[in-house]
Design a protein around this nucleic acid. Sequence first.
RNA 1: GCUUCUCUAGCUCAAUGGCAGAGCAACGGACUCUUAAUCCGCAGGUUCUGGGUUCGAAUCCCAGGGGAAGCACCA
Length: 509
Amino acid sequence: MSDVTPTNESSANDEQSGSGLAAEKARRLAQLDSMRAAGVNPYPYRFDRSHTLEEVRANWGHLEPGIETENGVSVAGRIMLKRDTGKLVFASIRDRSGEIQLFISKAAVGDDEFAAIKHLDLGDWVGVHGTVMTTRKGELSVKPDRVELLSKAVRPMPDKWHGLHDVDTRFRQRYADLIVNEDARRAFEIRHEIIASFRRTLHDRGFIEVETPVLHVESGGAHARPFTTHHNTLDMQLYLRIALELHLKRLIVGGMERVYEIGRIFRNEGISTRHNPEFTMMELYQALGDWNDVMEISETLITQAARDSIGTTIVTIREQEFDLAEPWPRVRMVDAVSEKIGRAVHPSQPVSELRSLAEEHGIRWEDRWGGGKLVEELFEALCEADIVRPTFITGHPTEISPLARVDRDDPWLTERFEIFVDSRELGNGYSELNDPVEQRLRFEEEQAAKEAGDVEAGSLDEDYLRALEYGMPPTGGLGIGMDRLTMLLAGVDSIKEVILFPTLRHEVL
RNA sequence: GCUUCUCUAGCUCAAUGGCAGAGCAACGGACUCUUAAUCCGCAGGUUCUGGGUUCGAAUCCCAGGGGAAGCACCA
């Protein structure tokens, strides 16, 4: 039994006069009633597909113009375009693999079914049984024997040519965006391929994927304001995690040696083209390694992800091309600042000196900032904007790196790096601090900063210290922002383009 | 949070102080090789909301709402 049998049209016409969205929906809903009255289910349960549209094209794409084969196929998709020439209707349907034209002949499907097909709307899902052919002009087509309605769209599609541009609607109604905007679909395919590539690379290197809690008792592992929530039965305040770090390192203590997690983290901060309150971080920890190991892993992961997602390691940033496969420059933070300022800068200098330097460059410093924080502020104000190609900025001051190990050659700095691309921080890694006594001192400094009013400072995590007391092997750790990496490889300027449902204010309907 | 811009038919856009319009989609009709099919016809509006100025407001002003960009924030 097939399809659409519009009956009793005249009886419903009174309520369907006029146009606009309400009238359009009323018209289509009335069609549903007609179909059901005629014993047709406009929402059948399933459909047996023999080929995706990509497979049809792969198998028969070589056909010369004007060929009618006897090869039967069953395909399914959404009607994207319809061209009605009377006794012949051309419809383009699309599934996730591609598009193909239906060549619907009145003679081939019969009068009743043909009339029903003419009442299909753009946006309807159909299942088609037919044969493969090419038109006289060579367009590969399926010539249906039967067209089944698989799902009726009661809301009209966006403009078939101009698509959907309004960014508000695109983000709120991502489903509509994905239906009509090829670029939107592409960005999320790239995102998927990047994540799949990471998993392959890490699996090949012996990393184990784990899942750690999203609900944290302490909010640690980064400097950020957390979201707070509450557990009713336990009657306790909980934080949504701002980083994966501290739980993953507990697993290194446990002897898992190589672990990673690709997970959502949450920061209760501003929203911008580079920030969404929830975003996806990949963090990995490798026992017996240090920052050099994880810098190498960073280059490999990202370069391979580029190959796998966009088929090249060449990326265009600010209209310049860079090859990710070339070694990334490594620049010490203090050297970058020193070069910019024209004299040596180092956190060991008297704070008063660094404060005047900050003032010279328009930075409003705060009393509680030490030399390390001042150096970082100088870097952000003077150097960040100039970084275009992927670059390791290394040697962050100890003061601002409470979980990183002190540089083996300079007690003021840590063995830490951040990956910067196009002025954006893309990743962060270091030789992990594994001395429980030193870690406690660093936490105490954090705690003091928090008590002094720094809302982003971490607190003292006794359980984490207890874990370190069992002994954590030397370890290299790395975090990469998956959203920003996707932005880089997909070549888009807003993080909302790579997050399916970005955070928006509540819509007033 | 601040500044600027923006919001008109389901979608894409016009109209800048003087009758709210077009294309697509829809609806009725013609057409068996179209490709954003074409052609004829018809219909569709809380111009984001609420005030105000004006003889007259989509347009100017005020307040509010949504969105965007930038700044601030954000290792």
